[in-house]
Design a protein around this nucleic acid. Structure first.
Lengths: 199, 199
DNA sequence: GCTGGTGCCTAACGAACGTTAGGTTGGAGC
DNA sequence: GCTCCAACCTAACGTTCGTTAGGCACCAGC
């Protein structure tokens, strides 16, 4: 049950299967088949199926947090737009780097046990709070349009997370061009004065 | 197996359960329990579990299409920004009106049988094409920033769809204020000239 | 007062589920 | 040459899955 190469392989193929068919839609024997071993053999490496999900979610949560920390570290008190840009860039970076794990983190936390689920939601909320804060500061500074920071942050994060729904690492669009476009779209969404156009 | 009130009730509770636990994570007996009947009794009303999912997805797909049709009908050749605004408003409208069914349509199409899945994806692509088209026109007209219309349309649609991840019909935010904010954020994301800011 | 249909029941089916127990293999270290 | 350990095996467990079969209660229409 310790951290070995094999254990990591299991989480990798499990991420991909969970992403495609969901946690409930993936059986232990499915994961084993992808590794060319028997279902029961998996239990030499993991304590339970739930344990595999938890490892993936927990590790990916840490990656998102670390990326945000690093992004903000070297521009401490820069203006809100630069900080939001850095946050968005870091977020998309984690998603693009390992789309399987990111997808599981984003969608499959519902399948966690109640306690782990609650703990994960708390972390997610703290993470989202960084976005809310910088958006609020930007509004106060007049850089961003006056929109409820909670709604704006939710909009931006789900938009960035939406990448996992369609992005293919070996598709026609390279990771950097998609990343740039996503960051630019996000910045522009919250920028500027209030639009006074009637619908 | 014909369309009755009871059949509709089944789809309603199934939508909510599929939304919360996914298609695979919801058993026929779960659906029955929510209706206070036995699992086997459901089969007096539906042909199969898959059949319930298909009804929900199929009907919701039609709702999105009809809403888009209606939105564009009365402003045929208006300028791109007005058309995109109408499309976004219509989309969010369908989502907010029945968030359970919308959530299932958006996330659970993977659990459809291969043939139905393919058919649904084709419809989705045609729907998304409307967004791509109007975005392309807006870029040509100079109203929108020059971003790959495919990326921009995917960004916008997943952002709007992201509403199902957090919106609660009886939460502190009313449907109209959230809808307005979402439309405004979306319009601004694609509007304007190219941002020439370095990251 | 019989008929038909709707809506539900219990009982059961074979298959698949997550998981446990106990055993075999093969290579590394002393 | 023996020990150890990681990695895998087969067999089986109790449970839950989607689904079928057959039957009963109620109510409307003739």
């Amino acid at each position: 049950m310790v951290e070995t190469t094999r254990r990591r392989e299991i989480e990798d193929v499990a991420s991909e299967l969970f992403r495609e068919h969901g946690y409930s839609g993936t059986s232990v024997r499915d994961i084993a088949r992808a590794l060319d071993i028997q279902g029961a053999s998996l239990y030499a490496h993991v304590a339970s199926k739930q344990d595999v999900l938890w490892s993936i979610v927990d590790r990916t949560a840490s990656q998102f947090e670390a990326a945000a920390d690093a992004a903000l570290a070297d521009l401490g008190d820069a203006e809100p737009m630069a900080r939001l840009r850095a946050l968005a860039l870091a977020h998309v970076g984690v998603v693009v780097e390992d789309i399987g794990r990111a997808s599981v983190f984003i969608h499959e936390w519902r399948s966690l046990s109640p306690e782990r689920r609650a703990r994960t939601l708390t972390r997610r909320d703290a993470y989202e709070q960084r976005f809310r804060d910088v958006i609020r500061e930007g509004i106060v500074a007049g850089t961003f349009a006056p929109i409820d920071p909670t709604v704006a942050a939710a909009y931006l994060l789900t938009a960035l997370n939406g990448l996992v729904a369609w992005y293919q690492p070996d598709g026609r669009l390279g990771p950097s061009s998609v990343t740039d476009a996503y960051v630019e779209l996000s910045i522009r969404a919250v920028s500027g004065a209030a639009a006074d156009e009637a619908s």
